[in-house]
Design a protein around this nucleic acid. Structure first.
Lengths: 360, 360
DNA sequence: CTGAAAGCGCTTACAG
DNA sequence: CTGAAAGCGCTTACAG
């Protein structure tokens, strides 16, 4: 359990770690044999069960830990899979990170995730770092410039897959943003009609104009309006970034009706909307109803919330790992349907929010 | 920008990457010189500016990327810092992950975080994997058995620091759970008195009996009660894990008063409490008020919420990185005060929640 | 101002 | 059934 060298050296990490040479010496065999036993290829090499057992035991006694840097350097594959992602601080990205790790480990891959704060420079730097780490594959999640990452990796012979935001130089997995937004918009429109008796276009708030997801969601938003013969005035579409502050400012300076509905384009933006409500006491079953793209269990309980479009992270990651196996062509784009959730009051179940199944 | 070998090989990652040998050959110099130029030690070696420039240019042209596995293998320090953490799926751990990454990078360290799902087995396995990765240092965040990780790392000469949950074999940084819980309890007690006119002990729900944080928070909870001469009946203390389901079940099966207060021991547990409220329509300014340890911006808007104790992640990480520099003794335990937040209605500011400064 | 050489700890044909 | 040897791509004293 202890290599006897003592661990309390204040000066630094200068303990000499046990290597396969040390073990070979103790076991009276060769480093090759130790390596084979310890990495599981010993049956192929027809090493005796007895020797294998002895080596394994000694390795444990000595607290041997494989030096992965050396191992990876020698092998042609690293079995490291990298992921870059913008943030960890909401349920959506948090869930992606967790499931990516779990699925990777399940396949014997070592996941390394790095978070790039939505900064294009950091994205590229992080991708470069992962290339230096010899990742076998890189998942670019929500990257502002996925094609740049694809190119950078392609030059090093590393495959990439885009997640959440699509690119043209690697296969991509995204939510069905159009469908999710259209269904969510339908719900908000029908609720303000039922509760307020108003039949007016909604406000759309949050997102980036350059962003594929925002464009698609806006398209779904417009579609649902068009179904009712409604046209959305340009000044009701407020796309100035996802940041909460922007949303709050925008609402603050606008001239808003007594009773209206908002399509909120992310829980991040929703924080700003909620702050504004609180400040202006517009909340609490007053004249505002909103729906939000993305799911958050607490936001779901807010009384003005009439629906949330949850992105289906498990299926998205399933699709990603399928792509890892199938190696589809670069221009493939898989869209995963969203899960629409509406508050309990209109359903018979005991759940506070339930899933609804709208026509595709 | 391209090494000319083409990146579209469907078969795998079999492109031969550019190495310092390739560059040396093109530049008509030695690999040593290339290495020195590329890793910045060339001034020390008095390599001519001219050669340095040429090498740098060629490296760029060839799309050279350092092989970190080889580099780390050769050096004595890896500059990799590892962190294990239970989950990514709440604001607290998400914030820790982000700030750990940012601060690491700022120091030229490469952060690798891995999430262990609160499973003791996975914790140990993850720690082992990070040891194999030659991390220079490991932060064990919210580990169920931090001392086991400390030992495992110590045997490999790797320093560890405990975060969130303390251990005895490495220095630890934790929140002032006692103080935060006491202050939060005071607030809940005073609110149910002000709003309901009741002067009864609160319910404490969530956490693990074996968990240092739960014990400390319970101590603070009791202290605030004692200040008012109140004693908490044993059956009002429900400690059966953090999981939302457990809380929901427990509340469901209990005989509860008309008007009462709850101390909720984490936002994870709070989800269960909120589900129960919703099911039983106890919410909405009815007979329940709660306070919650940990902060969540949406949960903060729930009308029954009378306060949240936010753990001060920036200061916690500042303390961690101080420890990295100072190398304090293993038994040191730094407690970082929490930030108490109460709803706006009792404050004059425009913020929905504000910080309060209670006597320590 | 610069290069030859050793070696970090593994893996893997190759040769018994 | 097993071992000697080469080599992965770097870094770094050492010797000019």
């Amino acid at each position: 359990m202890d290599n006897g060298s003592g661990a309390g050296n204040g000066a630094g990490n200068s303990i000499k770690r046990t290597t396969i040479y040390d073990i070979a010496e103790i076991a009276g065999t060769s480093p090759s044999a130790v390596s084979a036993v310890l990495n599981g290829t010993w049956k192929k090499r027809r090493i005796s069960e007895k020797l294998a057992e002895r080596i394994t035991r000694i390795a444990e006694e000595q607290g041997y830990a494989l030096n992965l840097q050396a191992s990876v350097l020698r092998r042609e594959r690293s079995n490291i899979v990298g992921m870059i992602m913008p943030k960890y601080d909401n349920r959506y990205f948090g869930a992606i990170a967790e499931q990516f790790e779990a699925r990777s480990r399940q396949r014997g891959l070592f996941p390394v995730i790095t978070c790039t704060q939505r900064e294009p420079e950091l994205e590229v730097e992080a991708a470069r770092a992962l290339v230096s780490y010899q990742v076998d594959l890189l998942i670019a999640t929500g990257a502002t410039d996925p094609d740049r990452i694809s190119e950078l990796c392609a030059a090093a012979g590393i495959r990439t897959i885009n997640l959440d935001l699509p690119g043209s130089r690697s296969p991509s997995v995204v939510s069905d943003n159009f469908g999710g937004a259209r269904d969510l918009t339908r719900i908000i429109l029908s609720r303000i009609r039922a509760e307020f008796g108003v039949r007016e276009p909604l406000y759309f708030i949050g997102g980036r104009a350059s962003d594929h997801n925002t464009a698609e969601r806006l398209r779904g938003f417009r579609e649902a309006h068009a179904e009712l013969g409604l046209e959305v005035p340009a000044d009701q579409i407020i796309i100035r970034g996802y940041a909460a502050e922007k949303a709050e400012e925008a609402l603050e300076t606008m001239d808003l009706p007594e009773r209206f509905g908002i399509f909120v384009n992310s829980t991040i933006t929703l924080e700003g909307v909620v702050r504004w409500m609180q400040r202006n006491k517009r909340g609490g079953r007053s004249g505002l109803r909103f729906g939000c793209f993305d799911w958050d269990s607490f936001a779901a309980r807010l009384p003005e919330n009439v629906g949330m479009a949850e992105q289906d992270v498990p299926h998205m990651l399933e699709a990603v790992f399928e792509m890892i196996d199938m190696q589809p062509s670069a221009n493939i784009l898989r869209k995963i349907p969203c899960i629409l959730r509406v508050p309990d009051e209109w359903s018979r179940t005991g759940e506070a929010f339930r899933e609804v199944n709208l026509a595709g």
